[in-house]
């Protein structure tokens, strides 16, 4: 098989690995701050729809459309983040889950989003280097963030929010930052995603997708940046690898999720465990 043929067959899959790597990083950002939010799929949907409407209905250039999609999801995140982040634990998870459903149902019923049929004929504008540079940019940004005061503050909030506050960390704006930045990454990923899949439908951004994204982060591990990327790649490629199982391939997905939680609670990429291997050797 020549390189061109291979790319024609698998380009969508390869681009998806990158886009979902970004999604896994986006949710790991809020998780690293101790917040379980399930709205990332909805933010991806907002970014995807806004940018796709910008290129199809308003003929905007690709970069402006991407920017608009990113800003759109950032803005919505800011709007709902302010009140929602007063909640914690399961309440936060449930509220963001509820928000995600509301977004899905609104996408399903608006005229401009094409209703249940979704948007079709979105121009194919996403090139591999768009995805790669967006992914690298995200990784770079998160690396800087983790190494900074803000990153250490996130860690303190995750370990014990009350103690973090006693140490003089202003927790609310930092939690909002994690949430909004996560949404911006998700919005950008959504815009990129829309312009290589050609079609969008509201069902792409529902609860199942939110769970998939969470699975990626948990499977890969959130203790380092390679974890979510690894998890994103595995969860995206798994259905292809398990194609022979047909109807039962989702069962394998579920089983893997249970086994990882039980036996690898830190995820596949656990810096501590890897260091342990080297010490033993």
């Amino acid at each position: 098989m020549s390189w061109a043929d291979w790319w024609a067959t698998y380009s969508t899959l390869v681009l998806s690995v990158g886009v979902y790597g970004m999604m896994a990083l986006s949710i790991s950002l809020t998780l690293s701050c101790g917040l379980l939010t399930l709205a990332n799929a909805a933010f991806m949907g907002i970014g995807a729809y806004v940018s796709a409407i910008a290129t199809t209905a308003f003929d905007l250039p690709f970069f402006e459309a991407l920017l608009l999609g990113t800003l759109g999801s950032t803005f919505v995140a800011l709007l709902i983040g302010l009140p929602v982040l007063r909640l914690s634990g399961v309440y936060l998870a449930m509220a963001t889950l509820g928000f995600g459903e509301v977004v899905r149902i609104i996408l399903l019923n608006l005229d401009i989003t094409g209703g249940p049929l979704g948007l079709n004929g979105i121009p194919s504008l996403t090139q591999w280097w768009h995805v790669l540079s967006a992914l690298l940019g995200t990784v770079f940004l998160l690396r800087c963030l983790r190494a900074s005061r803000i990153g250490r503050a996130f860690e303190a909030i995750r370990e014990d929010e009350t103690a973090a506050r006693l140490m003089g960390i202003n927790t609310h704006p930092l939690k909002l930052l994690a949430f909004v930045l996560g949404a911006a990454i998700a919005g950008l990923a959504g815009g990129l995603n829309a312009h290589y899949t050609f079609t969008l439908s509201p069902g792409n951004f529902g609860f199942e997708n939110a769970v998939d994204i969470l699975t990626m982060a948990v499977l890969g591990g959130i203790r380092g940046l390679p974890g979510p990327l690894l998890g994103g790649a595995i969860v995206t490629l798994l259905p292809e690898v398990l194609r022979d199982l047909q109807d039962y391939r989702m069962a394998a997905n579920g089983l893997i999720l249970i086994l990882v939680v039980l036996f690898l609670p830190q995820g596949l990429w656990d810096p501590q465990r890897i260091r342990g291997w080297f010490k033993r050797a």
């Binding site: 109807d247 039962y248 069962a251 997905n253 579920g254 893997i256 999720l257 249970i258 939680v261 039980l262």
Partner: peptide
């Protein structure tokens, strides 16, 4: 508390897929 939530999501996916199959 995140862990039981994720594990039981896994159990749901497993059951749904088995029922579908």
């Amino acid at each position: 508390h995140l862990m039981p939530m994720i594990a039981t999501i896994g159990a749901t996916i497993l059951m749904t897929s088995l029922a579908q199959g």
